[in-house]
Design a binder for these strands. Structure first.
Lengths: 242, 242
DNA sequence: CGTAGGTTTGACTGATCTCAAGTTTGGTGG
DNA sequence: CCACCAAACTTGAGATCAGTCAAACCTACG
């Protein structure tokens, strides 16, 4: 049990932020049927069109979801950190409609959707937490439509950084001012609808303006207030629990 | 009851596409607490930040959801037609995170979220239909991120037209080849991350290419196959029931 | 039949992309 | 521990797609 305690810890903490759970609820989550898998960076966890009836719990590391156009353009739809549940739409839909990829070395638990549906039926508080999680994810997706559709390149990038910092902090993974960013500039471009080249240039602008600082993969938000203003970032859409 | 039969007809048909319902389920939907409202085009039904705990059922007409940047840029997040449930995220979240507006004269039923939560608790099949509806909406939002982020102007517009035609047909509102488009070119621009001027030019391109034809507000899709290819449209993301 | 909202057109601007080198970084095997 | 390699990052020059601004022109409706 100590083992699955470790594995499900981040997820339980996330569910507790979404709804109050009692001991029975927590116990039920701990004993969820699952299969642990450790994968390298860039490993594809699920592909568009898959019919495997399972959800993923990201135990450790980072992942993203994406879709591609028929011309090969790739659009990242969301980034995920430890504790996030992925592929929840498979709970009630037949097919995975996007791909899921680890963007760092990662540990995931594959959970059969049947097990999740059972826990939802038996534990209404868990079901409500999953509802909230799904609705918050939809809210984030809407904010991304706005970001990609109506903001300038610099604003899109700044917004993405703000969101990452905020969610990372909410998940208890560390302070928002300083962190190691798991994604490459190419991935930032794929998430913001820009090219890697343009992301690079705008990142330099932000750096020269003294808003952010970078040393290798270590990022510092030098002026949070200004970054937030540049990115037009209002955390309301995260509903305080993402 | 004949009255509410009429009012809830489109919604019941939509729920039936999402999950099998029995007579009790349908009866419960028909007797849902609600308040009918008829509004003019452009009427604001809900605003970002609202705390009123109610969802909307679009009984007749068309509506859209949108967000705005602090600089005034507006991004439409989705279009809705008769039978669609709006603001479902208020079921489990405290605040409306986007605005909702009628884009044609419309009739809506305002339903207190408490009534919807009750029906979900008592009628699991209805609850599952609402789950599916929410998940499909999230899938559509992801496709929109891809559309706005990674497609050319013409493709974005073509994709939007394909989606509208497909959803309209799925809702039983008429054939996909010919329809009256409820939105203005400005609104198409707001939905695709373009300006009205550019939408106008690309629409003319599509017309000159013989892909679409317009007469006043009446649109004809002259070459569905080509429109679909131009828009990179694969209806899988609608999960056959949107 | 006047008017406001919607559409169309033209000329010009500018943000972002493309292509094509480099350069740095981090990991790996010898 | 070092040499090497692939991936990631940088930089520059030129091309292009879409935006801006401004003026007409429809057309639906009161």
């Amino acid at each position: 049990m100590a083992d699955s305690e470790d594995m499900f810890g981040p997820a339980i903490r996330k569910l507790e932020r979404l709804n109050h759970l009692d001991d029975g609820d927590r116990q039920a989550v701990h004993t969820l049927d699952h299969r642990i898998e450790t994968v390298a960076a860039n490993h594809l966890l699920a592909a568009e069109g898959d019919i495997a009836a399972e959800c993923f719990l990201l135990v450790d590391g980072y992942a993203c979801r994406y879709k591609e156009t028929s011309l090969g353009g790739r659009q990242i739809l969301s980034f995920h950190l430890a504790g996030d549940l992925l592929n929840l739409q498979r709970l009630f839909l037949d097919r995975t409609d996007h791909s899921i990829q680890a963007i760092s070395p990662a540990t995931v638990a594959r959970i059969p959707t049947a097990a999740l549906r059972r826990i939802m039926a038996d534990h209404p508080r868990v079901a409500e937490a999953l509802w909230r999680d799904t609705l918050i994810e939809a809210s984030i997706a809407r904010e991304w439509i706005l970001n990609v559709g109506r903001r300038t390149a610099t604003a899109r990038i700044a917004h993405l950084l703000c969101e990452f910092a905020a969610r990372r902090e909410a998940a208890g993974l560390g302070p928002p001012q300083r962190f190691e960013l798991p994604m490459t500039q190419e991935q930032i471009g794929d998430a913001t609808g820009l090219t890697a080249v343009h992301v690079n240039r705008k990142l330099h602008d932000l750096e020269e303006a003294g808003v952010i600082a970078r040393l290798r993969r270590e990022w510092t938000i030098a002026d949070w207030h200004r970054l937030r203003r540049i990115g037009d970032f209002d955390p309301a859409y995260l509903h305080a629990a993402a």
